[in-house]
Design a protein around this nucleic acid. Structure first.
Length: 637
RNA sequence: UGCCAAAUAGUAUAAUGGAUAUUACGAAAGCCUCCGAAGCCUUUGAUAGCGGUUCGAUUCCGCUUUUGGCAACCA
């Protein structure tokens, strides 16, 4: 495919030079639209304009030239308006097909000798994973596979957020209300047990918050220090002002959540959580022991979920080990005059010229902020793996943060700074709004997996083609299909777009969906089983005389041969959706081919061989393409 | 108030500045004596608004509208 494109470009450049004495024109080919004949299209408008000629005349002159001089490549051409559509000789296609069949590196582009790290999903250890994490995990996993297929050496890294105030919240709730229960005694998966106490903390917190809020509503501020009253009062004014104003609902909500945030600090629970965090930072033995125990449970739970999802990691980083990093970088930045210091000793960077405002990088008391440790971690990753590129799979709410982080690293002239990329994705929301773990209205990842599997089981039993399988094989199949449907559902959509997930409308299993693709894979397998049974040969010498292809054969063949290009495109844009669409295209084309061309009742023996070979190649390409999405390809379903 | 993103049929989705705007779900008709009908095949319907650049704009540039997000010494 690439071969054809290059050849055609060279031929076109030659033609244009010979005909018009024009050199160095950019020759851009695009795929010919389905409704027209041919595979490659050269658009002649630009050139014609330069030459001051009619586009159709130009197109015709070039077409004739190529037909005369490159008849081994170009079979014929057609002109529609200014579009010059080439039909490539079947001999060339056939040779490419034979080469591709013999290629042992199908689905693996040549090595780039370059190392890239993909960081995902970097969860907090205070709650189980939810549907949003699944989008992150599937994206990270798929992009890792794609980059690896495109010739990079990939390191999958998971930076676990295992410390901080939110972790202390579940610890504290467990200490108070947990009665020493364990995942074993409670019969709950470790991460879910911890999540239960995180929700419990928030519930108790709301109870303590209510009387305080009530007082404020009655204009009683006696509980609060003067310093806080100054902050609280304007918020109350704002709330009262925008309360009944429909247009200012957002302002109202913002002010209200700001107020809650402030008032929370007056509850005993929040104070205890803060104290616990301080104890943790001072390495208090009991606190650390509780923390280790509870995080251990969470990791067991996460491991199980990762296993069920079919994803793995090469490297785990823990924030408890990295949260103090980066302070040396702050000093370095100060020396280099990239950062500046205020009177209170806090350290800042001026990014006004980058439209990013001023940003704090170290507090006045010398403690870190979020970006400080991220600076340190970036250096650590480079030190550990000598990576040229680093992909951060993080939600779009942190776009600003990533911009700041990358910009600082650029200013510090880090060798890896040019290779940093934030793979940003939109949130998954419910019809009623954002998912909030605190409030318990989330689509749980583990539950989702089970539900998908159940649907798959139900469908499989309806279609009734799985009698021969053992119980193990059946369970495995239900998993492959259910999980495939879910992965495809989340990966086919442009990451930038937010997804509103309606639990009432189930994940698609028909049409533009993974089970349809898997189904066609199973079909190709079925054909190959039968071909083997019948002892039919499908090596090149058996079909090399058959080039009178049916339209659907031709289309499928061209599509299959574009696989390497699709991988490169997906890798280049970090976008699994390219391959989702590609896999679907193949399945659709095979399905069409399947109904339009009989394989075992083919008109000639060579046609039969060709169709078996085409099925074989479809099977291989589909399997590898789905693999890049993290989706498995069943042989029967 | 600034910055960023999104806006495509009833719904969901696609399109390096190119042709009659992709695909699916939904709805309506047809196709299993023949390799797997989770299929194939017809039909149906959309670029938020106004302007600009261009031979050509869903795409690029303005302005407007709507929806999210960010702008915090939270992560």
């Amino acid at each position: 495919m690439l071969y054809i494109e290059n050849k055609l470009q060279i031929a076109l450049a030659h033609a244009i030079k010979s005909l018009y004495q024009v050199e160095n024109t950019e020759i851009i080919l695009q795929p010919t639209r389905k409704e027209f004949k041919g595979s490659h299209t050269f658009v002649t408008f630009n050139l014609s304009k330069k030459l001051q000629k009619n586009p159709e005349t130009t197109a015709n002159e070039i077409g004739v030239f190529l037909l005369e001089n490159n008849s081994d490549l170009v079979e014929k051409f057609e002109i529609v308006k200014g579009f010059l559509n080439f039909t490539i000789t079947n001999k060339v296609w056939l040779q490419l097909f034979i080469d591709a069949q013999n290629d042992t590196n199908l689905g693996k582009n040549p090595s780039k000798n370059s190392r890239v790290m993909v960081e995902y999903p970097s969860p907090n250890t205070n709650k189980p994973l939810h549907l949003g994490h699944l989008r992150n995990i599937f994206l990270g996993d798929s992009v890792s596979r794609i980059l690896s297929a495109d010739g990079y050496e990939v390191i999958k890294a998971n930076l676990v957020n295992d410390r901080g105030i939110h972790i202390c919240k579940s610890m504290l709730a467990y200490q108070k209300f947990g009665h020493n229960e364990t995942p074993e005694t409670a019969q709950i998966k470790g991460d879910h047990l911890i999540g239960k106490y995180y929700v419990e903390f928030e519930k108790q917190l709301r109870k303590q918050l209510e009387p305080l809020m009530q007082k404020i509503e009655n204009n009683d501020f006696s509980d609060f220090s003067d310093e806080h009253q100054i902050k609280i009062k304007p918020l109350v004014t704002q709330i009262n002002k925008s309360k009944d104003n429909l247009k200012e609902q957002k302002k109202y909500n913002d002010a209200k959540s700001d107020l809650k945030q402030l008032v929370q600090n007056y509850t005993s629970l929040m104070r205890e959580a803060q104290e616990m965090l301080q104890k943790w930072e001072k390495n208090d033995t009991l606190t650390k022991a509780l923390w280790t125990k509870m995080n251990g449970w969470v990791y067991q739970g996460f491991d199980e979920t990762y296993r069920n999802l079919g994803v793995s990691f090469d490297k785990f980083y823990y924030e408890s080990n990295t949260y103090l990093l980066g302070k040396d970088i702050v000093e370095e930045g100060l020396k280099k005059n990239i950062f500046y210091q205020k009177e209170d000793n806090s350290v800042w960077i001026d990014l006004v010229n980058e439209k990013l405002d001023h940003k704090l990088v170290l507090r006045g008391d010398g403690t870190s902020v979020y970006v400080t440790q991220d600076l340190g971690t970036a250096d650590l990753k480079y030190k550990d793996f000598n990576i040229q590129k680093s992909i951060y799979v993080i939600g779009n709410e942190q776009e600003y943060h990533c911009q700041v982080l990358f910009k600082i690293l650029q200013k510090l002239e880090r060798p890896y700074a040019q290779g940093l990329h934030h793979l940003s994705y939109g949130m998954i929301e419910l019809p009623e709004g954002r998912m909030k773990s605190r409030e318990g209205n989330v689509i749980d990842a583990d539950e989702m997996i089970v539900e998908m599997k159940d649907v798959a089981e139900k469908k499989c039993k309806e279609f009734g083609r799985i009698e021969g399988l053992s119980e193990n094989e059946k369970q495995n199949l239900f998993n492959q299909i259910g999980l495939g449907a879910l992965k495809y559902f989340l990966l086919k959509i442009d990451p930038k777009k937010k997804i509103i997930f309606n639990p009432e409308e189930s994940v698609e299993f028909n049409g533009d969906a993974a089970p349809f693709i898997q189904y066609n894979h199973a079909r190709t397998c079925s054909i190959m089983r039968k071909a083997k049974e019948l002892n039919l040969l499908f090596s090149a010498e058996n079909y090399q005389n058959y080039t009178n292809w049916h339209e659907s054969e031709q289309y499928l063949l061209e599509l299959l041969l574009s696989f390497p290009k699709q991988i490169t495109e997906a890798a280049h844009s970090y976008s699994p959706s390219v391959l989702a669409q590609y896999s679907y295209d193949i399945a659709k084309s095979y399905s069409k081919f399947f109904t339009e061309c009989s394989i075992f009742q083919a008109e000639t023996e060579s046609a039969k061989s060709f169709r078996i070979a085409l099925s074989d190649f479809t099977q291989k390409t589909l399997e590898k393409s789905l693999y890049l999405l993290g989706i498995e390809s069943p042989q029967k379903m």
